[in-house]
Design a protein around this nucleic acid. Structure first.
Lengths: 302, 302
DNA sequence: GTCTGCCCATCAGCGATACTGATGGGCGTG
DNA sequence: CACGCCCATCAGTATCGCTGATGGGCAGAC
């Protein structure tokens, strides 16, 4: 009685790898154990979860798959939250940052925190949006600094289904990255709707993700031209310059737009690029100092 | 390795009852088993979770307690979602309704659904806000119809940490319920801020909860005069008439405000009473029909 | 068509686990 | 001081879940 989280973990592995044997290898079980775990889960839920040969989730399995990652993440988050109570007085400060998060306020706040806590162990890692939030929830990072697009008054729609707190750090207008020769590249401003049928780079970790554009504009257009994985801003610039597709980026960032491309500000009112700091549970002293620094940075000019 | 949900369930029972023995009785275990489960959980998380004698959560236990109900709810929700796949073709339609949810659209939609599915088994139950949403998540109801206060463009802040979908059913202006002799009872409109230091009935299931007022106005005032549990609209009217405190209710509801009280509309722009329909996972045919009926009802006058 | 290889289900056996029931110690209470 | 209540611990046992071996079914090669 009661769904075993271990079985859930095994289930998602099996689905992801589409193989009992491969999942067994990954998890350090024998194939027999995996088979028995899935069978037990199916009996427990009284429903077949997997099609065999080829291995694929059934309708019921698909439903379970919608819930499983959230459950497992929350389980990890609970464990991490409990662990933070005991040992977090030490100066461990791991910050997970997304590629387009405003770097200046973060850098300044980090500098101040480094001064105040010279012995703190400081790590900043550049990761994808989802990983940043899940890392915080699971206790693999003390803080995440995440960017995204939202209307002026709304909070960011954070990807993970985990209980976290957030603070707005910076807001910038948005711009469209166009190749230098593009017919609209001379414009002072562009409305997003006028470009919704153009082709777009699908580079969720190095530009504003298309899914966020669609959510923020309420349109389901913005056809993707090519996928670009990883947080490489240069790759985006080069691909836009080469005419492979357009991209939306925060305007007036630290770096110039680069050769061969033009950044034209968006005319859409109320659509903003925002950076938020995200943490989970109560904050240790060092983390608190850094968050306070980020809060102060809001007042300063970018 | 891996927190056992059964242990989590035991843990919350022990905390709620502040007793190992009582929790054992409730769960059908021996006291010995409960003691061992808690010990195993503490060893697994490497932290003491409970103070003994008297039994109370430690700091770490409090953290775990924040996560545990959400995890257990999601586990139940997953189980219910899987169960819906197989057996939900039958006409089972259990609707959980909060006290202030707009009754007219619901009644009309229910009537239409009853006509279209004469053999459907129909149950409507009046419950608190949190129970309504958790009932849907846990598969104890097919649909919830929940009310709350929100700004015009925001969705309702639903209480449960569970993955559900929602549809706006109706919106009404808000009114303050004042005793007939109140100095402001002759007003045409009242701003909420002018009353934030008055005393208020804390009747979360029979009027707009104070927590929602505070969240929607951004003020943490609105001191409570007395608590009133349960969804009794009459009790609210009587208490307001007796001068025990004020209350915010949807204006122009089905029932007249009652003797001895006056309902004065709120002047606060953008603050609305909204009713939403809430469901989980995919909807069975009957549920789909009812939700469609609720969607249609939005167009009609209230 | 047949052979071979891969993959999942099943089974026996064994070690680990989690329960019961009994016992003991600590603390408040009469 | 004695009693009662409550939680921790222990021994014993039944069950559970894993390993390793075996078997059946499907696909691709020849």
């Amino acid at each position: 009685m009661g769904v075993d989280p271990q079985q859930l973990r095994t289930f998602v592995s099996v689905v992801r790898l589409a193989s009992f044997s491969a999942a067994a290898r990954e998890l350090g079980y024998t194939q027999s154990a995996v088979s028995q775990q899935i069978a037990a889960l199916e009996q427990e839920l009284r429903a077949p979860l997997l099609e065999r040969r080829p291995v694929a989730p059934t309708e019921a399995g698909a439903r379970l798959l919608e819930h499983a990652p959230g459950i497992l993440l929350r389980l990890d988050a609970a464990r991490a939250d409990v662990a933070r109570v005991g040992g977090s007085a030490r100066g461990l400060l791991r910050v997970a940052v997304t590629a387009l998060a405003a770097p200046r306020p973060l850098a300044r706040a980090l500098a101040a925190t480094r001064l105040a806590y010279p012995r703190a162990e400081l790590t900043v890692s550049l990761v994808g949006r989802t990983s940043a939030v899940t890392a915080v929830a699971a206790g693999e990072a003390e803080l995440a600094v995440v960017d995204g697009v939202a209307a002026a008054s709304d909070p960011l729609a954070l990807p993970a289904a985990a209980p976290v707190s957030a603070l707005r750090v910076a807001e910038q207008p948005l711009a469209v990255l166009l190749p230098a020769g593009h017919p609209l590249s001379g414009r002072r401003r562009i409305r997003l709707a006028s470009l919704q049928d153009a082709f777009w780079l699908d580079a969720p970790d190095a530009s504003v993700p298309l899914t966020e554009l669609r959510a923020a504009t309420g349109s389901d257009a913005f056809p993707p031209s090519m996928a670009l994985v990883g947080p490489s801003a240069d790759a985006v610039t080069e691909c836009v310059a080469a005419g492979l597709g357009l991209a939306v980026v925060p305007a007036g960032g630290a770096s110039a737009p680069g050769e061969g491309v033009v950044a034209v500000p968006l005319a859409d009112a109320g659509l903003l690029h925002r950076t938020e700091a995200v943490w989970s549970g109560s904050r240790a002293e060092v983390v608190d100092h850094l968050v306070a620094g980020l809060a102060d940075a809001r007042a300063e000019p970018l």
